[in-house]
Amino acid sequence: MAVLQFFTPSSPIVSARLHPVVLFNICDCYVRRPDQADRVIGTLLGSVSDGVVEIKNSYAVPHNESADQVALDVEYHRNMYMSHLKVNPKEVLVGWFSTGFGVSGGSSLIHDFYVKELKDSVKDLKDAQNSVPPLHLTVDTGFRNGEASIKAYVSVNLSLGDRPLAAQFQEIPLDLRMIEAERVGFDILKTTVVDKLPNDLEGMEASMERLYALIDDIYKYVDDVVEGRATPDNDIGRFLADTLASVPKISPAAFDKVFNDRIQDNLALVYLSSLIRAQLGVAEKLNTAAQILDLQSGS
């Protein structure tokens, strides 16, 4: 009796995390793809820990696709991989990406190639405990169903007895929060043209405005609840209470002292730096004057 069974990978990948630079690179490659190509594919680099794959880097690999076959530039892939390893040996092969919606026909062929490639590279690195199956990331650059769908898959082998039957792509959760992009600021990354980078104080102003708006929202919400306009939510209430409790309780006198000390410190620093700047100016003038005098006495 033949038993149809799944082989789950030895150390399954639970989820994946995407670094914004990968998304940017994939989109850039897609924009720069050759004339006749429908999609771009390429290699993903990153690291794996505790079943979470962090996709940190990527590069496109030229390929040719016809009705039923895919030709990947293997040499190119290997060269590029070696170059990337030189810069950052910690970023290893974790999978591959393709643009388009979902998994398509040729994908399993390419996936097989990456499975083999990953096995070889692991052998090279003598890093067997980290061997996880490669990941397949799809980015729908065509916005086919009206939204940005980015999905990650792992492949599971489906076999009948000992005979491999098919490979099944299973979707795994993908973390798209991209803290790194938040640090840079979505304002800069989501518009097509930014004329000027925000400087320190402008950024500060924006942050404060946002904080102010948040506090306003909370006021409004609390007022609404008190006056019976909104239905109270215990969770939100508890959250607000926690937040208020996290403000340290200091007596006004003590707070004033700390506050004034800090202000004085900062004033002293500003004074010092202004002094040094004035000093630089004076020194330059004196130097020039000395040179002129010197020149006159010399001639």
């Binding site: 989501k190 518009t191 097509t192 043209v193």
Partner: peptide
């Protein structure tokens, strides 16, 4: 100045 492609901007 920073510029992004329309595709990136959409994403």
């Amino acid at each position: 100045k920073i510029s992004n492609s329309a595709l990136i901007s959409a994403f």
